[in-house]
Design a protein around this nucleic acid. Structure first.
Lengths: 336, 336
DNA sequence: TCGTCTAATGTTAGCGCTAACATTCAAGAA
DNA sequence: TTCTTGAATGTTAGCGCTAACATTAGACGA
């Protein structure tokens, strides 16, 4: 405190102070300062106090870049998502980051924007920062991407799905079964004309297959499939393109809510329970919003944050089960 | 390709290959390999081809940790948000990351969870990775945090607000004026009993002040203020706690929609236009969802992704205007 | 008394890369 | 012919830190 007032170095005086400047000021060797930062128990209390004072005086902030190079540990994890502006993946990022940040790990975030080439570039960019693990939504879209990860020799966690041949670890759920569950439910409800709306990304497609297969197995006609652009809230207009349909599975809640909005405009939305709905709608994701609208949205609930937390755990523990099925839950409300 | 088959090193053969291993294989010095990676134009085409082949053979991935230490450039930006599982900030992160990733910058993401102590810890953690700039939502909550950033001698961008004494650059809008605009509109609509629901974070509070001051200046009684827990969709129940209120400004769209859901349950929500609503509701954020529900949500529209893009630009260009007001827009729909 | 042990601190070398400064050589200028 | 120039490549030193291995001194038992 006193020396803070008498000494330069507190304010913005040129370059950031280094370990050895702190060491000089405290009258110790740099390794001792390093120990104060990383293993304070190994340093005698008086020495430690002197070093800590010097660090405060100089406003020392350890340089983890140098530390990482020297120790071959970056304390960082690379995270690759299709997009972060999608609450469904944002929950996962929040979950894993809540788990990793207290442990001193930083999250390096990258977005593929559902673009295979960009995904490969981002994977390479992430790897060049030498993260200690990579967590990604889905699986690499290309063989190149796969090879990159396989050769990286660090824990890799694929999420939001249960790939047949995972690179390493998996935290997700069975998208095919989710589609099956929805179709089963709609069939049991007596629906006859099913349709699926959503993107054609790998996970959405897997949901579609499950949905279609189950519908066919139940003796229904093959459901219609409407591929919507992402960000396309054109799901509002989807109803017009699905004449005669009496049940819709939307690959995510946003599409489901948009579709319901279209139904409302068309006057085919009731305030009553599912049985009263001319067109049943089931979403996926269980956005909070789904409970707030009317009729409340039936949906496949998936715990995005649990996926994130589980993925984080899988990066930390190398032993044990590497394939965690977090499951899903069909939450029935009023929309279908 | 051919040598890929004949040589070890392609597969997971021990440690990651280094520059000098590539150099040895290509028969050049390591600096030449480094040049092939960073300034290929300086290298003769034949040499370059040889080096590129060697890199491919070995599966070389540059080590940016070492590169950063040597060059004092990390090509990374630290990003601090209260939470990422909130579409409003997720848009901003997406915007800035879309701008930065193509330029070779990585985003290091940290969450403060609206906790001042955690914010300070995360700021220190970010700075220890020596990012070339920091972008944060809001301003540091503590003097310590401020000092940390001020001493870092890198571009700092505060967003989502227009602080009076910014550390460096700013990309945001005037939260106070947003509150004023909403109050003005409600007053013009003839509303008498105003209320504000939302969190008590700095930006929410600024909105509240603008809202209150304008209401008072218009001769109305002081509006009620209901402070809601974040994640609290208890906004559903808020109506019961606001007897007699005929207009509500919700600090964000999620709260607004939750509140409207409560109104619906209470039977005080009409399908008609704003003038028909017993209780007007105005949100903030302009979530896509707001247009999909019924009645459609009136809101203060803020371009979260533009804030992100602008913030990114401010980290890259050191000259020019450092205080960008992106403004907001009162979007009137049916809810108020 | 001597060796042995432990706690506290120090010395050395090097992580993988790049900045800054050589060096080499061929082509053109004077 | 000799000098100059520029394109291509190399050499050297060091970024800030930590792993691994000393070293020192005091405590303690035999």
């Amino acid at each position: 405190m006193s020396s803070e007032l008498t000494e330069p170095g507190t304010g913005p005086t040129g370059a950031a102070p280094t370990l050895s400047e702190v060491a000089k000021r405290a009258g110790v060797s740099s390794i001792t300062v390093s120990r104060v930062v990383r293993m304070p128990d190994l340093v005698a209390p008086e020495t430690r106090a002197r070093v800590e004072q010097a660090m405060r005086d100089l406003g020392y902030i350890p340089n983890l870049v140098a530390g990482a190079l020297a120790s071959a540990r970056t304390n960082s994890v690379g995270v690759l998502v299709p997009t972060i502006a999608n609450s469904i993946f944002a929950d996962t990022v929040q979950g894993l980051s809540d788990k990793l940040e207290p442990l001193g790990f930083s999250v390096i975030l990258a977005q593929s924007r559902y673009d295979a080439a960009r995904e490969d570039r981002m994977l390479a960019a992430l790897l060049s920062r030498r993260p200690e693990a990579i967590i990604m939504v889905g699986s690499p879209a290309t063989e190149d991407g796969s090879r990159l990860l396989r050769n990286a020799r660090i824990p890799i966690v694929e999420t939001w799905d249960l790939p047949a041949n995972p690179i390493d670890a998996v935290a997700g759920f069975d998208n095919y079964k989710a589609g099956v569950a929805v179709a089963k439910h709609l069939v049991a409800q007596g629906r006859k004309q099913l349709a699926f709306i959503g993107g054609d990304d790998p996970r959405g497609t897997r949901r579609w297959f499950g949905f279609r297969d189950e519908a066919l197995a139940s003796g229904l006609a093959e459901p219609r499939r409407l591929i919507l652009d992402r960000k396309d809230s054109g799901s509002v207009a989807a109803h017009a393109r699905l004449p005669g349909v009496d049940a819709v599975f939307a690959a995510n809640d946003a599409h489901a809510i948009g579709f319901m909005s279209g139904l409302r405009k068309a006057g085919v939305l009731r305030d009553g329970p599912a049985s009263a709905q001319p067109v049943a709608v089931i979403g996926l994701g269980d956005l909070e919003m789904g409970q707030l609208i009317s009729p409340t949205l039936s949906t496949i609930s998936v715990h995005g944050d649990a996926i994130g937390r589980t993925a984080a755990t899988l990066t930390l523990e190398r032993g044990g089960e590497r394939r965690i099925d977090l499951g899903f839950e069909l939450v029935l409300r009023d929309s279908g």
